[in-house]
């Protein structure tokens, strides 16, 4: 497999307070806050305890947060 090329000329998305909130703060709130909340909930979700099922959902939610932060940062990129 070759070392795949990357388009280094495209600007990297900028880091702004808004991208920090969306790309870093929101994932922490979702993962930690959600786990602490669902830990005390009875029942099962698709066969998993609710807190564990929530973390599985976060595996999709967290990339979404970072993708939005990337998009927001691109608008501000030089």
């Amino acid at each position: 497999m070759p070392d795949t090329p990357d388009n280094a000329h495209e600007p990297r998305s900028a880091t702004t307070p808004l991208t920090l909130v969306v790309g870093l703060g929101l994932p922490y709130a979702l993962v930690i806050g959600g786990f602490l909340l669902f830990e005390h909930v009875d029942g099962v979700v698709f066969g998993f305890p609710p807190a564990v099922a929530w973390l599985f959902a976060c595996m999709v939610l967290v990339p979404c947060c970072m993708a939005v932060a990337w998009w927001l940062g691109r608008a501000r990129a030089p």
């Binding site: 994932p27 993962v31 930690i32 807190a51 564990v52 973390l55 599985f56 976060c58 595996m59 967290v62």
Partner: peptide, 12 residues
């Protein structure tokens, strides 16, 4: 929760 949480949050 601990194990998946820390790996998941290391990416942001």
């Amino acid at each position: 929760g601990w194990f998946m949480g820390y790996i998941l949050l290391s990416y942001p």
